Simulated assay, not measured.
Amino acid sequence: MAETMIDVPGYKAGTWVLDPSHSEVTFSVRHMMISKVRGSFGVKSATIVAPENPLEARVEATVDASSIDTNDEGRDTHLRSADFFDVETYPTIEFRSTATRVEAGDLFVDGDLTMHGVTKPVSFELELGGFGVDPWGNYKAGATATTVVNREDFGLTWNAALETGGVLVGKDITITLDLQGSLEQS
Protein backbone atom coordinates (compact mmCIF):
# COMPACT_ATOMS: atom_id res chain seq x y z
CA MET A 1 0.00 0.00 0.00
CA ALA A 2 1.45 3.38 -0.98
CA GLU A 3 1.98 5.97 1.70
CA THR A 4 -0.26 9.01 1.45
CA MET A 5 1.66 11.29 3.88
CA ILE A 6 5.19 11.31 5.23
CA ASP A 7 6.88 13.29 7.99
CA VAL A 8 9.93 15.21 6.81
CA PRO A 9 11.59 17.08 9.70
CA GLY A 10 12.24 20.70 8.69
CA TYR A 11 9.94 20.56 5.67
CA LYS A 12 8.02 23.75 4.91
CA ALA A 13 5.26 24.20 2.37
CA GLY A 14 5.73 26.86 -0.28
CA THR A 15 7.56 27.50 -3.53
CA TRP A 16 11.23 26.57 -3.58
CA VAL A 17 13.58 28.06 -6.17
CA LEU A 18 16.89 26.54 -7.22
CA ASP A 19 20.13 28.14 -6.07
CA PRO A 20 22.31 27.59 -9.18
CA SER A 21 25.56 28.48 -7.42
CA HIS A 22 25.03 25.55 -5.03
CA SER A 23 23.51 23.06 -7.46
CA GLU A 24 24.72 20.89 -10.31
CA VAL A 25 23.53 18.30 -12.80
CA THR A 26 26.13 15.65 -13.52
CA PHE A 27 26.20 12.46 -15.54
CA SER A 28 28.43 9.49 -16.25
CA VAL A 29 28.51 7.04 -19.14
CA ARG A 30 30.77 4.11 -20.03
CA HIS A 31 33.53 4.86 -22.55
CA MET A 32 34.94 1.92 -24.54
CA MET A 33 33.19 -0.30 -21.99
CA ILE A 34 36.24 0.05 -19.69
CA SER A 35 35.96 3.45 -17.99
CA LYS A 36 33.50 6.25 -17.35
CA VAL A 37 33.27 9.75 -18.79
CA ARG A 38 31.72 12.28 -16.45
CA GLY A 39 30.26 15.64 -17.25
CA SER A 40 27.87 18.34 -16.17
CA PHE A 41 25.17 20.68 -17.43
CA GLY A 42 24.15 24.16 -16.35
CA VAL A 43 20.69 24.41 -14.82
CA LYS A 44 18.58 27.19 -16.31
CA SER A 45 15.76 26.96 -13.79
CA ALA A 46 14.10 24.69 -11.27
CA THR A 47 11.07 25.21 -9.08
CA ILE A 48 9.45 22.97 -6.53
CA VAL A 49 5.90 23.72 -5.49
CA ALA A 50 5.53 22.06 -2.10
CA PRO A 51 2.10 21.80 -0.47
CA GLU A 52 1.59 20.72 3.15
CA ASN A 53 1.94 17.05 2.14
CA PRO A 54 5.49 16.44 0.79
CA LEU A 55 4.17 13.59 -1.39
CA GLU A 56 2.13 16.14 -3.35
CA ALA A 57 5.17 18.29 -4.24
CA ARG A 58 5.74 19.07 -7.92
CA VAL A 59 9.05 19.80 -9.65
CA GLU A 60 9.81 21.57 -12.93
CA ALA A 61 13.40 21.92 -14.10
CA THR A 62 15.13 23.04 -17.28
CA VAL A 63 18.76 22.40 -18.23
CA ASP A 64 20.71 24.24 -20.94
CA ALA A 65 21.81 21.39 -23.26
CA SER A 66 24.55 23.55 -24.84
CA SER A 67 26.21 23.94 -21.43
CA ILE A 68 27.47 20.34 -21.49
CA ASP A 69 30.99 20.14 -20.07
CA THR A 70 33.12 16.97 -19.99
CA ASN A 71 36.49 18.76 -19.67
CA ASP A 72 37.23 18.09 -23.35
CA GLU A 73 36.14 20.84 -25.76
CA GLY A 74 36.35 18.56 -28.81
CA ARG A 75 34.10 15.96 -27.19
CA ASP A 76 31.74 18.69 -25.92
CA THR A 77 31.43 20.11 -29.45
CA HIS A 78 30.60 16.61 -30.75
CA LEU A 79 28.02 16.12 -27.97
CA ARG A 80 26.34 19.43 -28.92
CA SER A 81 26.14 18.34 -32.59
CA ALA A 82 23.33 16.53 -34.41
CA ASP A 83 25.13 13.21 -33.62
CA PHE A 84 24.04 13.61 -29.99
CA PHE A 85 22.06 16.43 -28.34
CA ASP A 86 21.56 18.59 -31.47
CA VAL A 87 21.40 21.70 -29.28
CA GLU A 88 20.47 23.94 -32.21
CA THR A 89 17.19 22.03 -32.55
CA TYR A 90 16.76 20.91 -28.90
CA PRO A 91 18.32 23.63 -26.70
CA THR A 92 16.95 22.35 -23.37
CA ILE A 93 16.50 19.21 -21.34
CA GLU A 94 13.38 19.34 -19.18
CA PHE A 95 11.89 17.42 -16.28
CA ARG A 96 8.30 17.65 -15.00
CA SER A 97 7.35 15.54 -12.02
CA THR A 98 4.16 13.50 -12.00
CA ALA A 99 4.32 11.90 -8.52
CA THR A 100 6.37 11.61 -5.37
CA ARG A 101 6.28 8.26 -3.61
CA VAL A 102 7.85 6.14 -0.90
CA GLU A 103 8.86 2.59 -1.78
CA ALA A 104 10.54 0.25 0.72
CA GLY A 105 11.50 3.28 2.80
CA ASP A 106 13.11 5.14 -0.11
CA LEU A 107 11.75 8.36 -1.61
CA PHE A 108 11.25 8.66 -5.38
CA VAL A 109 10.22 11.49 -7.69
CA ASP A 110 8.60 10.19 -10.88
CA GLY A 111 8.18 12.36 -13.93
CA ASP A 112 8.64 13.01 -17.60
CA LEU A 113 12.15 13.71 -18.89
CA THR A 114 12.38 15.41 -22.28
CA MET A 115 15.73 15.16 -24.01
CA HIS A 116 16.54 15.46 -27.72
CA GLY A 117 12.85 16.02 -28.44
CA VAL A 118 11.77 12.73 -26.83
CA THR A 119 9.77 12.51 -23.60
CA LYS A 120 9.99 9.38 -21.44
CA PRO A 121 8.94 8.57 -17.86
CA VAL A 122 11.79 8.32 -15.34
CA SER A 123 12.13 7.85 -11.58
CA PHE A 124 14.73 9.70 -9.54
CA GLU A 125 15.67 8.24 -6.17
CA LEU A 126 15.72 11.19 -3.78
CA GLU A 127 18.00 11.62 -0.77
CA LEU A 128 17.11 14.63 1.33
CA GLY A 129 20.16 16.46 2.63
CA GLY A 130 18.21 18.54 5.10
CA PHE A 131 16.99 22.04 5.81
CA GLY A 132 18.56 25.11 7.38
CA VAL A 133 18.77 28.89 7.54
CA ASP A 134 21.72 30.66 5.91
CA PRO A 135 23.44 33.73 7.50
CA TRP A 136 21.09 36.04 5.58
CA GLY A 137 17.91 34.46 6.92
CA ASN A 138 17.01 32.40 3.83
CA TYR A 139 15.45 29.00 4.49
CA LYS A 140 17.31 26.39 2.40
CA ALA A 141 16.86 22.75 1.47
CA GLY A 142 19.31 20.33 -0.09
CA ALA A 143 18.79 17.03 -1.87
CA THR A 144 20.45 14.58 -4.23
CA ALA A 145 18.45 12.75 -6.89
CA THR A 146 19.76 9.93 -9.08
CA THR A 147 18.45 7.94 -12.01
CA VAL A 148 19.75 5.79 -14.86
CA VAL A 149 18.37 6.22 -18.39
CA ASN A 150 19.08 4.45 -21.66
CA ARG A 151 20.26 7.23 -23.99
CA GLU A 152 18.97 5.34 -27.03
CA ASP A 153 15.43 5.65 -25.66
CA PHE A 154 15.85 9.41 -26.24
CA GLY A 155 17.15 9.09 -29.79
CA LEU A 156 20.81 9.51 -28.77
CA THR A 157 22.02 6.54 -30.80
CA TRP A 158 25.37 7.60 -32.27
CA ASN A 159 28.12 5.08 -31.56
CA ALA A 160 31.23 3.49 -33.02
CA ALA A 161 32.16 -0.20 -32.98
CA LEU A 162 35.55 -1.10 -31.48
CA GLU A 163 38.01 -3.49 -33.13
CA THR A 164 38.23 -5.38 -29.85
CA GLY A 165 34.46 -5.75 -29.63
CA GLY A 166 31.96 -3.57 -27.88
CA VAL A 167 31.19 0.06 -28.60
CA LEU A 168 32.68 3.45 -27.87
CA VAL A 169 29.76 4.86 -25.84
CA GLY A 170 27.62 2.90 -23.36
CA LYS A 171 23.84 3.02 -23.45
CA ASP A 172 23.17 3.69 -19.77
CA ILE A 173 23.65 7.20 -18.43
CA THR A 174 23.63 7.83 -14.68
CA ILE A 175 22.20 11.29 -13.97
CA THR A 176 22.79 12.90 -10.57
CA LEU A 177 21.21 16.12 -9.39
CA ASP A 178 22.82 17.81 -6.38
CA LEU A 179 20.44 20.61 -5.58
CA GLN A 180 20.00 23.39 -3.09
CA GLY A 181 16.98 25.65 -3.09
CA SER A 182 15.51 28.56 -1.18
CA LEU A 183 11.98 28.95 0.08
CA GLU A 184 10.54 32.03 -1.59
CA GLN A 185 9.72 34.77 0.88
CA SER A 186 6.06 35.74 0.92
Rank of each mutant, 00 (worst) to 15 (best):
Val29Pro: 05
Val29Thr: 09
Arg30Leu: 14
Met32Arg: 12
Met33Pro: 04
Ile34Cys: 05
Ile34Ser: 10
Ser35His: 09
Lys36Thr: 13
Lys36Asn: 15
Arg38Gln: 13
Arg38Asn: 13
Gly39Trp: 10
Gly42Met: 10
Val43His: 02
Lys44Gln: 12
Lys44Arg: 15
Ser45Arg: 11
Ala46Trp: 03
Thr47Leu: 09
Val49Cys: 07
Val49Asn: 13
Ala50Gly: 07
Glu52Asp: 14
Glu52Gly: 14
Glu52Val: 09
Asn53Ile: 11
Pro54Gln: 09
Glu56Asn: 14
Glu56Thr: 12
Ala57Glu: 10
Arg58Leu: 06
Val59Trp: 05
Val59His: 07
Thr62Phe: 02
Ser66Glu: 14
Ser66Trp: 12
Ser67Ile: 07
Asp69Arg: 13
Thr70Tyr: 13
Asn71Phe: 15
Asn71Ser: 15
Asp72Thr: 11
Glu73Val: 13
Glu73Asp: 15
Glu73Ser: 15
Gly74Tyr: 09
Arg75Glu: 06
Asp76Asn: 04
Thr77Gly: 12
Thr77Ile: 06
Thr77Trp: 04
Leu79Met: 13
Arg80Tyr: 06
Arg80Trp: 05
Arg80Gly: 04
Ser81His: 08
Phe84Ser: 04
Phe85Leu: 15
Asp86Tyr: 09
Glu88Val: 15
Tyr90Glu: 03
Tyr90Cys: 04
Pro91Asn: 10
Pro91Arg: 05
Thr92Cys: 06
Arg96Ser: 15
Ser97His: 04
Val102Tyr: 03
Val102Met: 14
Glu103Lys: 08
Gly105Phe: 08
Gly105Ile: 06
Gly105Lys: 03
Leu107Pro: 01
Leu107Arg: 06
Val109Arg: 00
Asp110Thr: 05
Asp112Pro: 00
Asp112Ala: 09
Leu113Met: 07
Leu113Val: 00
Met115Glu: 03
Met115Arg: 00
Thr119Ser: 14
Pro121Lys: 01
Pro121Thr: 01
Ser123Asp: 00
Ser123Lys: 00
Phe124Glu: 01
Phe124Trp: 01
Glu125Trp: 04
Glu125Asn: 06
Glu125Cys: 01
Glu127Arg: 08
Leu128Trp: 09
Leu128Val: 14
Leu128Arg: 08
Leu128Pro: 05
Leu128Thr: 07
Gly129His: 03
Gly129Ala: 11
Gly130Tyr: 04
Gly130Trp: 02
Phe131Cys: 02
Phe131Met: 05
Gly132Asp: 04
Gly132Phe: 10
Asp134Arg: 09
Asp134Pro: 09
Pro135Gln: 10
Trp136Cys: 06
Gly137Asn: 00
Asn138Gln: 09
Tyr139Cys: 02
Tyr139Glu: 03
